[in-house]
Write a protein that binds this DNA or RNA. Structure first.
Length: 643
RNA sequence: GCCGAUGUAGCUCAGUUGGCCAGAGCUACUGAUUUGUAAUCAGUGGGUCGGGGGUUCGAAUCCCUCCAUCGGCUCCA
């Protein structure tokens, strides 16, 4: 048979040669590190013979599929160790994930705690060193069913019931056998470094109505050094955590009496929000948006009209009864904006109408969902609604995407994915409004606009809003968590429910399309993200305090005050450290506060009306006149915002 | 909401198997010092040990309950 390698080189081997033998024929070194094989595009065990002409890619730790095979096999290793300590354990599934693997297990009456993880890790090391082979076996389905029926394993029987008839594959390593599609690495010996990370509950099949299983997360590596590096990376990530930095840099806080998920913005945080709003307002003004303002609550009748109440009432704060009428805190701004559009009595000549408001909304997120600033109950959206004709849609939609990309350049956000969510036909009338043709039409419009703008995107079925398709922008925080930062949604349904119309050129009344867009998402999440993204080292235009003046001694405090006033007049945000401390201490504290510029002022500077400039993280920049310093600051800000 | 863990001064953390008035560093305040690029010295203040209840001669420490936070699950208009 002829084997074709990824570089298109071909070699001949006898029929039935295994991938492992092929690896060995190339080099002993490769044979030592190879984990799995991709044969004709399918990832398989190295030990399986190849019978016909095939393409072959040998997978090592460097390939994602190699890694996930390694972790999948590690999950089996953990399962073996678990079964040793908990003989009555039942297993659900144990897949690899982005960083490691987990196994969902049912321990019956027993519980497992963090203290137990150490002994399980030790057992895993022992089993790994024994270098047991992962042995693949095919068994007819009825036999497999009989096996698990006898064992009383309802979980594996459930898995089997979803598998096609025919042969079922099992894998055995050491004393552990599991129903498993595979593939696996050849033997446990290559798992050199093992760390079990945490224990969590997880609903069976991801359904909260089902029983909760115990999920154990772990990670493994072929080398101890790689595990050490991974753990060090986790430590580093913790330092950037917005909850830690947010406290240290005095950006926001929570208070038990105020309530969970209701952040209090400290003065530094308020500056961040103001700067974001300044940027957004200027950007939107240029793009033809008009600003509106609406109240924080509305009658339930409006949310019945919009259709939100039946879908999301349990996620809204419970209603309050006012004069016999139900009122709700607003969970979103759109219905209010629809009401404003209605009063505009717009004709096709007025469209598109773009209404913007950074309205504060309240959502009753489940308590377990709250997470620092990233998931809160009071939130301010960088919100706007664009009402347009079908013909205008593509251009408006593209302009919104352009705006996203401009913001991303300003913030230096390089890793993002546009996620295009569509409906699911079998949930029409339930999760989604029952307008099958409009769904397909608007989805096609969005898809075309994305393709025309050459924006890379992934399409996710059954994830859209109830009123139309949407695009979410996914970004990754420093801690590696994925977040929806921005959102851009098409609404073909709710404007009609509100009876919104415009007078078309042919004198008929038509319903406008509505684009919901929030390029900066919520202020809360965006700032939480920025804290981690910049590790607290905000760009000059954004940072709460741009300059801190450090007088050498209190003799120069007066000069410091004059200087501060002058900077303030030039719209530069400054602080003065007037404490009776030595300059070294003042510098150290200013560095820890991550303030971009320190101005050291003593006798020389006061006499010559100059400043000695020190830049955060860089050090002494030498002396310059006050005027030159102001220009320096203004130019730097200019450069940061015009990218 | 569910599973598991955590909760000591403004912040970061000690507090041995339950046992003298609960400690440290930083911060704050007071005084001395008048300082030139990452920590000057001394003194003082500050805690109903998350809230409530219980066990005990005695509870920060053990038990129950509520609250909040953290790791996940579920959810995210």
């Amino acid at each position: 048979m002829i084997i074709t390698f990824p570089d298109n080189k071909k070699r001949e081997y006898p029929d039935g040669t295994t991938s492992f033998e092929i690896a060995k024929s190339i080099s002993e070194g490769l044979a030592r590190i190879v984990l799995a094989a991709k044969v004709n595009g399918e990832v398989r065990d190295l030990t399986r013979p190849i019978q016909v002409d095939s393409t072959l890619e040998l997978l090592t730790w460097e390939q994602p599929e190699g890694k996930s095979t390694f972790w999948h096999s590690s999950a089996h290793l953990m399962a073996e160790a678990l079964e040793f300590y908990y003989p009555h354990i039942k297993f659900w599934v144990g897949p690899p994930v982005e960083n490691g693997f987990y196994y969902d297990v049912d321990l019956g009456d027993q519980t497992i705690t963090h203290e137990d993880l150490g002994k399980i890790e030790t057992k895993m090391r022992e089993l790994a060193q024994a270098n047991h082979q992962y042995i693949r076996k095919e068994i007819p389905k009825p036999e497999a069913i009989a096996y698990f029926t006898e064992k009383g394993d309802e979980y594996k029987l459930d898995l089997l019931s979803n598998l096609e008839d025919g042969n079922i594959t099992f894998y055995t390593q050491g004393s552990f056998t599991d129903l498993c599609r595979g593939p696996h690495i050849p033997s446990t010996g290559s798992i050199k470094a093992i760390k079990l990370l945490n224990i969590a509950g997880a609903y069976w099949k991801g359904d909260e109505k089902n029983k909760q299983l115990t999920r154990i997360y772990g990670i493994t590596f072929p080398k101890q050094k790689e595990l050490d590096e991974y753990l060090a990376m986790l430590e580093e990530a913790k330092k950037r955590d917005h909850r830690k930095l947010g406290k240290e840099l005095e950006i926001y806080t929570f208070d038990e009496d105020v309530g969970p998920g209701l952040p209090l913005w400290l003065p530094n945080g308020a500056v961040l929000i103001e700067q974001l709003e300044r940027l957004a307002k200027a950007t939107e003004k240029k793009a033809g948006y008009k600003r509106v303002r609406t109240p924080h609550l509305a009658k339930g009748t409006m949310y019945l009209t919009s259709g939100h109440l039946p879908y999301y009432e349990e996620s809204m704060f419970p209603s309050m009864n006012i004069e016999g009428e139900k009122y709700f805190l607003k969970p979103m701004n759109c219905p209010h904006h629809h009401k404003i559009f209605k009063t505009l009595n717009a004709s096709y000549r007025d469209l598109p109408v773009r209404l913007a408001e950074y309205g504060t909304c309240y959502r009753y997120e489940q308590s377990g969902e709250l997470f620092g600033l990233m998931r809160v109950r009071s939130l301010q959206m960088n919100d706007a609604h664009i009402y347009c004709t079908e013909e205008q849609f593509a251009q408006e939609f593209k302009a919104v995407n352009e705006m996203y990309l401009k913001y991303f350049r300003i913030f230096g956000i390089e890793k993002y994915v546009m996620r295009f969510s569509t409906h699911s036909a079998n949930k029409l009338g339930k999760k989604y409004v029952n307008e099958p043709e409009l769904w397909l039409k608007t989805e096609a419009m969005v898809r075309n606009a994305l393709i025309e703008s050459k924006i890379p995107y992934i399409e996710v079925p059954d994830e859209s809003a109830f009123y139309g398709p949407k695009i979410d922008v996914q970004v990754w925080s420093a801690i590696g968590r994925e977040f929806t930062l921005a959102t851009n949604q098409v609404d073909f349904a709710v404007p009609a429910r509100f009876g919104l119309t415009y007078r078309a050129a042919d004198n008929t009344l038509k319903t406008p399309l509505c684009i919901h867009r929030a390029p900066l998402g919520t202020h809360e999440r965006f700032i939480g993200f920025l804290i981690e993204h910049f590790a607290g080292n905000f760009p000059l235009w954004l940072t709460p305090s741009q300059v801190i003046i450090l007088p050498i001694s209190d003799k120069f405090n007066d000069y410091a005050h004059d200087l501060s006033q002058e900077l303030n007049n030039s719209d530069i945000r400054s602080l003065i450290d007037e404490r009776d401390e030595k300059i070294g201490k003042k510098i150290r504290d200013a560095e820890l506060k991550k303030i971009p510029y320190m101005l050291i002022v003593g006798e020389k500077e006061a006499e010559t009306q100059s400043v000695a400039v020190r830049k955060h993280g860089e050090g002494d920049k030498g002396a310059m006149t006050k005027e030159n310093f102001k220009t320096l600051i203004q130019q730097e800000i200019e450069k940061q915002l015009n990218v």
